[in-house]
Computed example of a mutant assay.
Amino acid sequence: MALLDIRFKSLELGRNVSITAIIPVDYIDYFNKVNRSLNPPFKTLYLLNGIYGDSSEWITHTNIKVLAEVNNLCVIMPSGENSFYRNQGEGRNYSNFIGQELLTITRNMFNLSRKREDTFIGGYSMGGYGALYNGLKYHHNFSKIVGLSPALIFDHSSNNSNKPSSLFSLSFLENCFGSLENMDINEFNPEYLLKNLITNDKNVPDIYLSCAEDDEDLINPTRKFKEILEKNKEKVNYSYCEGRGGHNWKYWDNQLESIINWIVK
């Protein structure tokens, strides 16, 4: 398994950017003297980090490298930079970068499949929101979405306005999403995007949704999103998992093997 730290110029972000990549080219069985890596082009998971994190987090805190290797899955990990993976003006078009430019550049850089059915997006917390948002926005590019403890924080911000963390302050939320009024009809809301795709009979990516029971800030909005999926289960294929744990790497890492199996099946 090749593990690469890569830097390149991004037009959408207007500067050099860094990504971490796992490329399944050397799954070596030394006993039988054979490389068990499958021939490219590779299926690819674009995996997003949470707030305050960067492209190295998944490698540092989880078993993603081993799981990618045994499943011959390429994993591309950009840095979200507290952007919620949304366009935020010239030189900060994170959504365009994640949903379009990053795919083009990495496909040109490596021998990755260009097929929708081989291209997936996932993330945790802020990255879980970013995966749902961009996976639905660019539904023609991604066939599967993984939302781990997705930060659908605009959905319950009024209940957390007194919390000291900037994650829940009104000014932080408005900086990320603009006005929190009329979020039910705002394209930044994955619920709105999902309903719009269903209404217009578009291809909805399969969705894997998971949150810990003890994740007090995010479990209720995650359950609400799950209810929408359940109401539309004839048009949306989804899997839902809710287990013991909190908003932490132990929970997310424990989920990862099931998630990778769901992705590559």
Rank of each mutant, 00 (worst) to 15 (best):
G91K: 11
S171E: 15
K250N: 08
N87R: 14
I23E: 11
N141L: 04
L47A: 10
S161L: 12
I19D: 01
S258F: 03
P24R: 13
K265I: 08
I259H: 05
E117H: 10
S79Q: 13
K33W: 11
S37E: 13
I207H: 03
G53E: 14
I59G: 09
K163V: 01
R7T: 14
S149P: 09
G14D: 04
V25W: 00
P190L: 02
K226W: 01
N35E: 10
L103E: 05
T20L: 09
P150L: 09
L209V: 06
F84K: 05
L167V: 13
G128N: 04
F84E: 01
E117Q: 14
L73M: 14
N196P: 00
K33G: 07
E230I: 08
S161H: 00
N108W: 09
L173H: 03
N220W: 03
Q100M: 10
T199W: 00
N87H: 07
G53H: 13
D5E: 04
N63A: 09
T199C: 08
H140M: 08
D155H: 05
N87I: 07
W262A: 03
L48Y: 07
C74T: 15
M126D: 08
N93Q: 15
I64C: 12
L193T: 01
N186R: 03
Y94P: 14
K195I: 08
K224G: 09
I198K: 11
W249F: 06
G178V: 04
Y124K: 14
I153L: 13
I51R: 12
R7C: 10
R114G: 15
I259M: 09
R86K: 15
N203W: 00
I228D: 05
R114Y: 05
L209A: 03
D253K: 05
Y52F: 10
A131G: 10
N16S: 01
S210T: 12
L13E: 06
S179W: 12
D215K: 07
L197Y: 05
F97W: 08
E191H: 11
N111W: 05
G135S: 01
I98H: 05
G50H: 11
K235Y: 08
G123E: 10
S158L: 11
N220Y: 10
F225S: 03
W252V: 12
S37L: 13
I207K: 06
I98D: 02
N108E: 15
N248F: 04
F8K: 03
L194A: 06
D217G: 05
M126Q: 15
D155L: 07
S95L: 10
L170C: 00
S83E: 14
R223V: 03
I207E: 06
N32S: 15
V264T: 15
G135H: 02
N96L: 09
N141I: 03
N63R: 13
K195R: 11
P164F: 05
E216R: 00
F142E: 12
M126A: 15
A68V: 09
F142A: 09
L170W: 08
G178Y: 02
P41L: 06
N134G: 11
L103S: 08
L209W: 07
Y251C: 05
S113T: 08
T44W: 06
C211W: 07
Y52K: 02
S171Y: 03
F177K: 02
R223N: 10
G99P: 04
P205M: 01
S166R: 03
D215W: 12
R223E: 11
R86V: 08
F225N: 05
S157Q: 10
S55D: 15
S149A: 15
